[in-house]
């Protein structure tokens, strides 16, 4: 064994001394593609994420209006933001939306995933396709579709309600009902991807656990509650985290669905950024709001990570 090792080492050292012609090619074969891919990703990341982010940070300390030169304004945008009722209103409505929508999306996604992984379920493939379709639809198209469905004057839902003798419901001119429609549309659009994550996670929970629990007399709910749910905890964490961040940044769908209305009562924070930045040309101020949003999201991510870590250590 030693001789073989020595011979091998000697042989390698001899190749090193002779300058083996294969060595560089082997090295290049494995490092060049990795290098190209890494550099490409790094350049794209720097160009489309870091650079706009840095620009936003710089703008947030200026009174930049989208044209002309920058004028340093210090912390003026941030102090103005603290007393801006519109900012707080938009932030509060966004948080309300997230607090309602994330549990809805979580429960619906998990429920559908549980049904589709159930041994007794029929037509699983067709059901998966149907539930996954919304993921393929642009948020703008989804918003327009739901707007049409819940249109106050000629919408399908009000038409159907009229057929069964229920009066028209002010889906778009009542702030809370309008938000409810956004929550429904959001759950519809956000279920697909999370459902796939849950299906994969549920399938990774060992069947033997369920079999053992069943032998011990646990019913289906008890098995789901005490085996499946803890087993998919990391996935649950990711779904909640990603859904929270995604919904905090909700823009396209809600813009197409109700434009933040009625009035400005359902204006979310990114819509507020858009309006101040583009409609009012207060790019510096909008950048400050963006930075605040980023900090809020970082805090949410950090807190959720801590909570999840603690929960797992207890488990």
């Amino acid at each position: 064994m030693t001789a073989v090792t020595d011979r091998g080492a000697g042989s390698q050292s001899a190749r090193r001394r002779r300058g083996s012609p294969r060595r560089p090619r082997t090295s290049g074969r494995y490092t060049l593609p990795a290098l190209v891919l890494t550099v490409t990703a790094a350049v794209l990341f720097l160009l489309f994420f870091v650079w706009p982010g840095a620009l936003g940070l710089i703008y947030s300390f200026t009174d930049y209006r989208g044209i002309g030169s920058l004028r340093f304004a210090g912390l003026e945008n941030y102090s103005q933001l603290l007393g801006d009722d519109e900012f707080w209103g938009a932030l509060l409505r966004t948080v309300t939306y997230v607090v309602i929508s994330v549990p809805v999306v979580y429960v619906v996604s998990l429920g559908i995933a549980a049904l589709l992984t159930s041994p007794g379920a029929k037509g699983k493939t067709a059901a998966k396709l149907v539930f996954f379709l919304p993921w393929l639809i642009s948020p703008i198209v989804a918003g327009v579709t739901w707007r049409w469905l819940f249109g106050e004057n000629f919408g399908f839902v009000n038409y159907a309600l009229g057929l069964v003798g229920i009066g028209e419901v002010p889906w778009t001119s009542n702030a809370d009902l309008s938000l409810a429609v956004v929550v429904i549309a959001s759950a519809w659009g956000g279920t697909a991807f999370n459902m796939l994550l849950f299906i994969a996670a549920i399938r990774n929970v060992p069947v033997s656990y369920h079999e053992a629990a069943a032998l011990d007399g646990a019913n289906a709910w008890q098995r789901f509650r005490h085996i499946t749910l803890p087993g998919i905890a990391p996935t649950s964490f990711m779904v909640v985290l990603l859904s929270t961040i995604s919904m905090m940044k909700e823009f396209a769908m809600v813009q197409a669905l109700n434009g933040g209305g009625p009035g400005t009562s359902n204006r979310f924070i990114v819509q507020y950024i858009y309006e101040t930045g583009f409609n009012r040309a207060q790019v510096g101020y909008a950048s400050a709001v963006s930075i605040v949003l980023m900090i809020i999201l970082l805090v949410i991510a950090f807190v959720q990570t801590r909570v999840e870590r603690k929960a797992n250590s207890d488990f």
Partner: peptide
């Protein structure tokens, strides 16, 4: 935990360019 932290922070960071683009 480290990977998870990085992932969470990365996901949150993506908010900035999205909001500012």
């Amino acid at each position: 935990p480290r990977r998870r932290d990085v992932l969470a922070a990365g996901a949150a960071t993506l908010a900035l360019p999205t909001a500012l683009s």
